[in-house]
Amino acid sequence: MALSGSQREGDWTRLVVPVAVLVASVAACSVMPPAGASARTAVCQPHGADALVGRAASAPIVEQARMASRSQAVRLVMPGEAEPQVGQIDRLTLFLDEGGLITRATCG
């Protein structure tokens, strides 16, 4: 039995629509960075802040340490505070002494 042109067209349409839906759903599931975020996640590099060890942890110095370490955030740890848990690869942790001087820099 031969198929007419309209029957062949109907078969083609029945195949194209599910494939198009599948392609669109896969594209919708891809991970996209948040608006305004860089495509590459920042990873803290603590050695960048080593030059600031011994300096007072003023706002400009803390910001300079953040930028030098390429981190997105900074946590200040005062003497007697619990050691922070490592986990945020984009956070610089500055440890301070009783006088507010930076004693060491780590990431996490």
Rank of each mutant, 00 (worst) to 15 (best):
A28M: 15
A28K: 07
A28T: 13
C29H: 00
C29P: 00
C29T: 04
C29Q: 05
S30V: 04
S30K: 03
S30A: 07
S30R: 09
S30N: 02
S30W: 00
V31Q: 00
V31E: 00
V31H: 00
V31N: 00
M32E: 06
M32K: 03
M32C: 01
M32P: 00
M32R: 04
M32H: 04
M32S: 06
P33N: 06
P33W: 01
P33Q: 01
P33K: 06
P33G: 05
P33V: 05
P34V: 10
P34Q: 10
P34K: 09
P34S: 06
P34D: 09
A35C: 03
A35F: 09
A35P: 06
A35D: 05
A35G: 04
A35N: 06
A35M: 05
G36E: 14
G36Y: 14
G36D: 14
G36W: 14
G36T: 12
A37D: 07
A37Q: 09
A37R: 11
A37C: 08
A37L: 09
S38R: 08
A39K: 15
A39F: 12
A39H: 14
A39Y: 13
R40C: 01
R40D: 01
R40K: 09
T41K: 09
T41R: 07
T41H: 04
A42N: 12
A42Y: 09
A42W: 09
V43K: 10
V43E: 06
V43R: 12
V43H: 07
V43L: 08
C44T: 15
C44A: 14
Q45M: 13
Q45I: 13
Q45S: 11
Q45C: 05
Q45V: 13
Q45K: 15
Q45A: 11
Q45T: 12
Q45L: 13
P46G: 04
P46K: 04
P46A: 04
P46N: 03
H47P: 06
H47Y: 06
H47Q: 15
H47L: 11
H47W: 09
H47A: 14
G48T: 10
G48C: 12
G48F: 13
G48K: 13
G48R: 13
G48L: 11
A49P: 08
A49V: 04
A49S: 08
D50R: 11
D50Q: 12
D50P: 01
D50T: 10
D50E: 14
D50L: 08
A51Q: 11
A51L: 03
A51H: 04
L52K: 03
L52M: 13
L52N: 02
L52H: 05
V53D: 07
V53I: 15
G54I: 02
G54L: 02
G54E: 02
G54D: 01
R55P: 10
R55F: 10
R55Y: 10
R55V: 09
R55C: 10
R55D: 09
R55A: 12
R55E: 14
A56P: 01
A56G: 00
A56T: 06
A56Y: 02
A56I: 03
A56L: 12
A56R: 07
A57F: 10
